[in-house]
Amino acid sequence: MRISHMARGVVTGVALAACTMAAGHHITPTVELVKQADMIRQTLIGAEHYFVRKVTIGREDLELIRSEVSFEPEDPEYLFFLGKDDSDQEVGVVLFPQSNTQHGPLEIGLTMGPDGRIEHAIATKATVETKPWVQKVVKAGLMEGFVGLRHGDDPARALERVSRDELGAMPYYYARVAVDAVKRGLALYDALYAGQSATDED
């Protein structure tokens, strides 16, 4: 009798638990390595006020960007996060270019200084699978290799700081993915922000 009640309890409990996965399609989760808000706050040094500039990409700029990098916008609106000091001077701008791979996206946060050079490069998003590879790349110093670069420079130069033999095949592959993301970021920054070709809406 006791076993019977226990069995019914187990059936009910497990069935209820199973019902919670009613929408149980599989999905590969992303991992937030650094929150975007934290990167904006920590790398826009001296900023007292924050703004977001939403640029709706036009056909001319899209063509310009594609002449340099592969870019399929998922959203016509691209976001730049600005910081200004107390005297209303811009201290920098942050953007988050992303590269998609079969193992999930890799997002690199880039903080651009007023001189148009990268001041900070931080891996902000990976996936459960790719996180250890990305962390290995970060630890090897790849991100520091992007600092100081501006549009027109070759981000692949940063690969000189890492060794394929020491990193291993997959981390090195992700180092190259990071290079692609930075290259895309520099092209987007130049076309949509630095030149301020985007006219302001009223």
Partner: peptide, 21 residues
């Protein structure tokens, strides 16, 4: 999230807003 490129304006345009981090 495909962008209908034919519907894009010729030039980019932007708007700047205050941001609450």
């Amino acid at each position: 999230a495909r962008v209908d490129e034919a519907s894009l304006a010729q030039e980019s345009h932007g708007v700047t807003q205050e941001l609450d981090l």
